[in-house]
Design a protein around this nucleic acid. Structure first.
Length: 422
RNA sequence: GUGGGCGUAGCUCAACUGGUUAGAGCACCGGACUGUGGCUCCGGGGGUUGGGGGUUCGACUCCCCUCGCCCACCCCA
């Protein structure tokens, strides 16, 4: 037997029964985002490796060990994007969009690539819906964006499964101060920390705060919290953001343990989490990234945004309701060459009018064609056989009413039926 | 990268302590007045039991290796 070629590990096919959900999500997101003034941008899947090293941070796990890196034929190092924000920022700078657009709000949809071990809710190729707003640093904008995310989950009827968790991780002034205090605190109890946390202590001390191990949790619960060490500006900014959320009736909880994994985050950060999907509980996440643009060699322009995990969102949708593909209105059951000569032009004209229909092309018995029509869940089966051809008529069977009748073999007659069935 | 679990028809699963041509349901195809669906009945196709090696008279069942999938850690959407 010839060896079967299978998809690459962690890369999945999305079959028609599932694309219904994907499309529903995309369409709801598009109309919602656009109503907020966000415009669609599309960027390449492949970027120079350096973009991600500088944008995301060269010591983050994503850049250090999860990227698909390739050498181009000219020796240049390229990477499949592990996330979208760095690329959007690059496009923004490269096209001088801050000089052109009065409003710099973009949304984006596409695949991302991370070489991790697959598990529930985690793939090597996965999809994100991203939202990015550049040029303004304002609590009301941050709150508006979180409200938009909340509205999307309401439209998708999955908001009951989600919690908006929010935190503020400080600015370049106050974060280092807190960081030192935390490191100092943790160092004093270093022996009680787990193996992973000792490593985290070196690399990303904030992560110790959300370790799942009991011992570390106990220590973390007594650790100093960033909120108590924010500078006046950050504190004020955070308070205002929370107030805007409250008056907008967006439910949220403050979670001082939220830390983002990408270096570019500053200030307000948030996650949309669920406890219905196993260990990978973040359905969306985002925050401010006020230094990203500058670090990529662009203008000093602040940004805020979030990314929604499409597969995870679809998983929640599927747990709650069923979406089905649109069924054809007509099925042409044909017997013989002459019948096909009658049916084909009629089917083509119906589609021209936007009516979904199917016709049989293989030479099967009427019984088998009826079975197919039934399986397709069509409303009308149009039977065309020798008798019909001779008389210039069509036999129409109403599959729901289980009644059938003859009509003239004219497109106008079929359109009348289509109109009546709507 | 590290752990654990699992691999039998398209899908969900069977097959006593190793023992005859590996079964069932669903799905698929066809038939039951050679032009009529959904129900029922009947029939049919489809598996080198993930792959390789070993033990044995005999392996889906035992052993080894390998590949793959799943879940968790790590990390994150």
């Amino acid at each position: 037997m010839v060896k079967m070629i299978k998809a690459v590990r962690g890369f999945k096919d999305v079959l028609p029964e599932d694309t219904v959900y994907w499309r529903y999500l995309e369409e709801e997101a598009r109309t919602l985002f656009e109503s907020f003034g966000f415009r669609e941008i599309r960027i390449p899947v492949l970027e120079k490796l350096e973009l991600f090293q500088r944008g995301i941070g060269s010591t983050t796990d994503i850049v250090e060990k999860e990227m698909y890196v390739f050498e181009d034929r000219n020796g240049e190092l390229l990477a499949l994007r592990p996330e979208a924000t760095a690329g959007v920022a690059r496009a923004f700078i490269e096209n001088s969009l801050h000089m052109k657009d009065p409003v710099n709000k973009y949304y984006f949809f596409g695949p991302m690539f991370r070489h991790e071990r697959p598990q529930a809710g985690r793939l090597r190729q996965f999809h994100q819906l991203n939202v990015e707003a550049y040029g303004v640093k304002s609590p009301s904008l941050d709150a508006e964006i979180m409200a938009m995310l909340h509205m999307l989950t309401q439209k998708l009827k999955i908001d009951d499964a989600l919690h908006l968790e929010i935190n503020h991780i400080g600015c370049p002034q106050c974060r280092p101060i807190y960081r030192d205090i935390l490191i100092n605190f943790l160092n004093n109890q270093k022996e009680k920390l787990c193996k992973d946390c000792k490593r985290r202590l070196e690399k990303n001390p904030l992560r110790v705060l959300d370790c799942k191990k009991e011992g570390c949790k106990n220590i973390a619960s007594q650790a100093p919290q960033i909120i108590d060490y924010l500078c006046d500006q950050c504190k004020d900014y955070f308070d205002k953001t929370l107030d805007y959320l409250a008056v907008s009736e967006v439910p949220f909880v403050i979670n001082p343990m939220i830390v983002r994994g990408l270096d570019y985050y500053t200030g307000v950060v948030f996650e949309l989490t669920t406890d219905e999907l196993g260990a990978q509980n973040a359905v969306a996440a985002g925050g401010r990234y006020d230094n990203l643009m500058k670090e990529l060699g662009g203008p000093d322009i602040p940004g805020v945004g979030f990314a929604i995990g499409v597969e995870r969102t679809v998983a929640l949708m599927k747990k709650r309701y069923t979406l089905e593909e649109e069924t054809p209105l007509f099925f042409f059951a044909v017997m013989g060459e002459e019948a096909k000569r009658v049916a084909l032009p009629l089917a083509l004209k119906l589609r021209q009018e936007g009516v979904k229909c199917e016709m049989e092309h293989s030479d099967k018995s009427l019984k088998s064609q009826m079975r197919k029509a039934n399986k397709l869940k069509v409303r009308f089966t149009v039977i065309v056989g020798e008798d019909e051809v001779r008389k210039g008529v069509l036999t129409v069977r109403d599959m729901e009413e289980k009644k059938q009748f003859e009509i003239q073999a004219q497109i106008s007659e079929l359109l009348k039926l289509a109109e009546a069935a709507r």
